[in-house]
Design a protein around this nucleic acid. Structure first.
Lengths: 101, 101
DNA sequence: ATCATAAGTTACTTTTTGTAATTAAATATA
DNA sequence: TATATTTAATTACAAAAAGTAACTTATGAT
């Protein structure tokens, strides 16, 4: 086990995307801003992990969180420019999936 | 938690790629056929998980395993056409990583 | 017989996930 | 006043996956 010449940025990207549910959450957000429950309903992910993943993605600047003080509260998540920039990669995976799986 | 209309192929693709080390292993194999120890040295993955991941990828038809009965034995792993077809997605992630991380 | 080497596998600990119940905040209703 | 509703989480605990290091297997050279 060593890290020799592995590009740290690629390693970080793969670590982010290669985390369970992250890819699907980003894919879901390509459809536009969505609230917590919408994402939870669209994917087979539990609230616990969805919350955790969204926090990570927000911290990494891929996702933005907006709170609307309505009743009951509404929280919307959307892709930032940085997150949106992953669309090509995600669409590529989608295309591969339909062609090879 | 439900699965509503989520595309099963995309879900499977994300499950494959979204498994720790899988993305980097595939990326490494884009350089051409490599033996077990080469991959292990190039990435911060342990032999235990590398072995497990390569088995999964072989089972899914993305990677081919060839044994050369030399002394000591040589085992080479390479991408199949199906695995190679992921190059676009992987390169896309690489580009994103260098641009945004 | 002993050693060397590549490619794993095993045993054991730590971390991450899955699941379900619970909480917080802000009203509306009985 | 007390209870109910709804969204967005958080907590507690069990199960699964990952990290680490030592061990095994196969084959032939010394």
């Amino acid at each position: 086990m060593n890290e020799t010449t592995l590009c740290p940025r690629l390693a970080k990207a793969m670590d982010l995307i290669g985390k369970r549910w992250t890819g699907l959450i980003l894919y879901q957000l390509l459809d536009g801003p969505q609230r917590f429950n919408e994402i939870e309903s669209a994917l087979p992910v539990s609230g616990r992990l969805l919350s955790e993943r969204l926090k990570e993605l927000e911290k990494e600047g891929l996702v933005e969180r907006k709170v609307y003080s309505e009743v009951p509260v509404r929280v919307e998540y959307s892709l930032t420019e940085k997150g949106q920039a992953l669309e090509g990669a995600i669409r590529n995976i989608e295309t591969w999936a339909t062609g090879w799986l």
